[in-house]
Amino acid sequence: MRAKKAKEYVFSDLLGMEAYCKSHYAEYYSKSNFSCNVTQLTKGELLTSSICAPINDVHLELFKSNQTLLYEEDANQSSVAFCWINDPNRVSESNTIIGGHKMRELSIAGFNRLNKTGGNTWDIVGANTVLCCMSLKWDKLKGQIDKMNAYNAYARLEECIGIDSEAPSSSQLKGLFDRHFQHGVQCSQSFYDLAIATLEDSPESENLFTVRSDKTDLIEDLVKLLHEDRPGLPPLTIAQITQYLNSDSKSLRESCQASFDMSILQLIKSIRLEQVKKSYLNPHVPKGLRKFTMKQNALYYGFNKWSSFERLYFQTFSESPEESIDKAGAISVLVSDLLRQRK
């Protein structure tokens, strides 16, 4: 690892990871708010690793987790992400979905986080999948698009959620990314040029672009709704969800199954369970109080029966609620400076 400033961040809890992402983002894109919700979808102890090696105007990251994770975040207008998976030996059998686009070998997605339609975006990062993320600044990218007259690229940014591209520029982009993590690349310009070229030049075949549609909007809205922390948080019924999303239960059920490989209720359960866990880890509440309200927190998030909640909690996180509360506050991030390590 020769990239300058390359650092690895290792997390074993998602609250810490969210907080870190937030401040990392705020530091990088000054004046912009960013927040995300992360939920663990598979069962077992968690360990994630982010290797970040930013340069001027480009944020570059390699992300990996031993569990499958669901991300939900608000769209923003300051950054455009380009993500792809790196799995040359196809070991992970990735079930990764970025921005609603199912990720295959040639896929690049994530750029619809630049979403001006007021939406949000969601990703699933499959267990043990290496995800390559490049994030560009929208102002700069837009200026570049104007200069290069690359209005196909602009159209695709606004209307597509992902592409599967065999264009040479796409493999060059991935190559440059790898080279950065091996040797360190100083200049951001090539990242911008190749990103635009990938969007602009990819062949026009219908199959290669996933276009924004009612279906993709519906699933985005569903994910957003399930994460909403409304006052009182009454348990959501399928009927309420369909009414709220102005949809019918059949298409919701099918969309949910196709995207998450689980039913809506299972998905709600995973998200709510994660929310309870985060409340147990909340550093702003004294430990004694967290223990005192332990059962109420579970009830608040819709788990009416303590004993079955406890069982589900243990199955999912390999620890009991008490253990989570006890562990909280311990150092949850391990940062290492990779360049210094090598010296």
Binding site: T117, G118, N120, D217, K224, Y244, L245
Partner: peptide, 13 residues
């Protein structure tokens, strides 16, 4: 705008 929540967010922006 099919979904009132999305509409409200966009509206707010």
């Amino acid at each position: 705008f099919k979904h009132a929540g999305r509409y409200a967010r966009r509206y707010f922006t």
